[in-house]
Nucleic acid binder design. Sequence first.
DNA 1: AAATGTTATTTGTACTACAAATATACGGAA
DNA 2: TTCCGTATATTTGTAGTACAAATAACATTT
Lengths: 253, 253
Amino acid sequence: MNNEGINLKAKTPLKFSTTTLVDQVEEKLLEYIRDNRLTPGDTLPNETLLSENMGISRNVIREAMSRLRMLGIIQSRTKKGITVVEPPLLTGLEKVTNPYLFSIRTIQDIMEMRIALEIGIVDFIFNNCTADDIDDLKKIVEQGQTYEDNHWPVELEKAFHQRIYEIAGNPFITQFQNIVHIIFEFAKTHYDSLFKPINETLKKQGKLVTHEDLYLFIRNGDRAGYSQAIKGHLSLYLDFMKKAEDTEDRTDN
Amino acid sequence: MNNEGINLKAKTPLKFSTTTLVDQVEEKLLEYIRDNRLTPGDTLPNETLLSENMGISRNVIREAMSRLRMLGIIQSRTKKGITVVEPPLLTGLEKVTNPYLFSIRTIQDIMEMRIALEIGIVDFIFNNCTADDIDDLKKIVEQGQTYEDNHWPVELEKAFHQRIYEIAGNPFITQFQNIVHIIFEFAKTHYDSLFKPINETLKKQGKLVTHEDLYLFIRNGDRAGYSQAIKGHLSLYLDFMKKAEDTEDRTDN
DNA sequence: AAATGTTATTTGTACTACAAATATACGGAA
DNA sequence: TTCCGTATATTTGTAGTACAAATAACATTT
């Protein structure tokens, strides 16, 4: 794989440019990797060479490299140089996921996406589910029987759903849900006053779907029943999202 | 918001550390933002101050900052310093999404996740769908009628599904699907020999679900029908994924 | 008071220097 | 010869200095 073709900063003084030199180098590097169809194991020119070729300070090259390194696209090793590797998909998502940085609208959209995934994996769950899976779910449900209705401690609730993602068997979905889980915790603790009445209403209407209900549907192989139930189980959040739109307070301290 | 509390590199010489100093500073900064519950608009200490406080070269601080800047967590402005902003969710995903970097297994998992989302938004679609949406879909389907069966040009196929995501109304799902679309294109062009026979088989069995079929289910408000159909429509990919497991050639050049 | 000019601060880029790691080459011993 | 240890050279990681450009805050003038 040749190391030429990266040529930036010819004569243009790029003042008043909205993007910095680092941004441009980063883009060039990504472009280089894509256009040359580099695959894991291939190497990039070393920093000093790039610096000379592009006529750009090594500092700037390093900043751009540092970004790709953070995303897991490249790895650097002394004397060996820089090699391309297979990056994890969701590193960036993990780093930016911080409820305090998000608007309520964003939080709603994230919750909605999680719900879509939870509904979308129903078939995977029933196709892959084993007796061991059911056993594990049963144990979790039994642990939760001391708590009434939907008021499980967050850790137990997380364990239950996480176990279900495992059954579905898609690592990215599992990881995604784990990452955004903190958003749900945040919403519940910060908008408790909105959740409580919704929960009460659902309970009165007999629409409250407990984790045990979900478990039973899985155990009984009732795909349609589970599908309906999971929607009901998560409708709590859907209702919350509608209500949250009215109360746009950010609960700063 | 106070600017203290970031204290790194006390006396520990951190040699033989697997993580670099930049990694640690990045982590410290994210930690600082989280722990102090900074919200968009809040400011971070400027680079020189951080450099002095932490006893770390400004270069290193800048590299870490550069990473957060890339993710959209912070913005820097001359003289004003560094301010926290609401980051986009999927910047990282977008940057790492490059089919040539992914193993077949990863590609499979991504495709599966896309399919899960496509199935999971069925309810959203039917809840939100308007007459205009149906009109637009109709136009796309009409454009596609010159092509037989599933052999739409990628752009048209993309437009159709993208329009459906728009109906569902979740910006992150739309964005996610757009980002990973390139993976599907890649799979189709690189594993055409696998797709063709699957398509033929489906056609013979009369199980081939065309985009027009999908459109009609939406137009007729047939939620269950659409749900079934979209699964059939995407089963092409599910079958592909099973087959791809056997042929682990990476088609390098 | 408004407009204009000045100053000081902060980021962006460039450059140098050196420590640490390590792949490679080299050399000696079995 | 082959194997093992050592030396060398290369490359990344970190530190530090310098300066240009932008701009917020302040000062001055009209």
